[in-house]
Write a protein that binds this DNA or RNA. Structure first.
Lengths: 195, 195
DNA sequence: CACTCTATCTACTGATGCGTAAAGTAGCGA
DNA sequence: TCGCTACTTTACGCATCAGTAGATAGAGTG
């Protein structure tokens, strides 16, 4: 039931998906969708969101155990890309359909938990957890961007994708851990004109 | 008119926003919204999307002129964060509300143009433009992630945000340009178990 | 004042789709 | 055969808007 709903919602979004379509996809009648789906369209969608968010958080959190931040991050990214590519429709529901409208709050809190988890992956004695939050949010966004590229015809195994992301971010993260932040030394500082 | 529509759409999303609400926000009556807004809700929303996408692309593209990729990227990022923080509701419409549903295609093509533009910012004689696409998609995602953090209570000027993003990504990009990709040498390669 | 044109409003129609009620059917144990 | 459960089909009530038709107001002109 939730699988069918996730497929329909992933395809059409919350508003454009009808409960009749969910019923068809699940191979049952509409009253059954209400009996076993929570009693309303909102609740059904919320259940899909919660399940996918939980799946993603569990995946990223699990099997991380390592004292080395580099290893932790790589494993977390690998888990992320594995789950996302395996449960494509879950990803579509969570990050493309659910972020707008009534459920933005629910998705936002789910995303916050993942960002916090990533901040933990980065942190150790040499990194302040609070300072890690913007970096973690950046990383999660980067992973989403690479996932977008993948779903738009990009190729590669989850391991490849994780390694590619590590190529982009790890040198910078290592430098930050060593206290070396980037600054626009001789890059020019003219104001940006904004339309 | 478009400003009012963008505010309402940013707040509620396409479906949950009513034309009455747009009319109220603009201080006119509903038929006026149809007369001056394109004749349909879809067209009004599409105009908002196109305007914001154009604004962002113009901003990122303009004032880049430099032979140095590092400078180009920093300036592009600075322009991005300037525009996004200045036109908050435009950002909300474009990247949070419009990606789902009927307008996913329109937003997707707008985003593609920006990603392509970023790939050009990265490219020079030593970088293959095609290979730059996943990296550009990653970067755009990272910028979105940092913007998300900012809009959720993060602080900093656009220059700070751009510099922070450079800290994370530039060392990795420089290494990639020199031919040094990250690989999981001694990081462990156990399979990820997926629920 | 009369006439007209344009801009605007109030109030309605029509369609869509959520959610449910009613009536029928198949399986199953006693 | 009875009753119970689970499900189906069909049909409908009801609310919410998108979009429009007809009324109204103001302003310029003679």
């Amino acid at each position: 039931m939730l699988d069918a709903a996730a497929r329909v919602f992933a395809r059409s979004g919350f508003h454009d998906a009808s409960m009749d379509a969910v019923a068809d996809e699940a191979g049952v009648s509409k009253p059954m969708v209400y009996t076993h789906g929570g009693g309303s369209k909102e609740e059904l969608f919320a259940r899909c969101i919660r399940r996918e968010a939980e799946r993603l958080l569990t995946s990223v959190s699990g099997g991380i155990g390592s004292p080395d931040p580099e290893t932790r991050l790589y494993r977390g990214l690998r888990a992320f890309f594995t789950t996302v590519t395996t449960h494509r429709e879950g990803w579509m529901v969570l990050y493309r359909q659910a972020r707008a409208g009534t459920f933005a709050g629910e998705v936002f809190s789910a995303r916050s938990r993942i960002v916090t988890r990533v901040a933990e992956l980065l942190a150790d004695s040499s990194v302040d957890p609070a300072a890690a939050m913007p970096v973690a949010s950046t990383l999660v966004g980067a992973a989403e961007g690479l996932a977008d590229w993948y779903f738009d015809g990009g190729t590669g195994t989850p391991d490849d994708l994780a390694a590619q992301l590590m190529s982009v971010v790890w040198p910078g993260l290592a430098a930050l851990r060593a206290g070396h932040a980037w600054s626009p030394t001789d890059v020019g500082t003219e104001r940006v004109t904004d339309s």
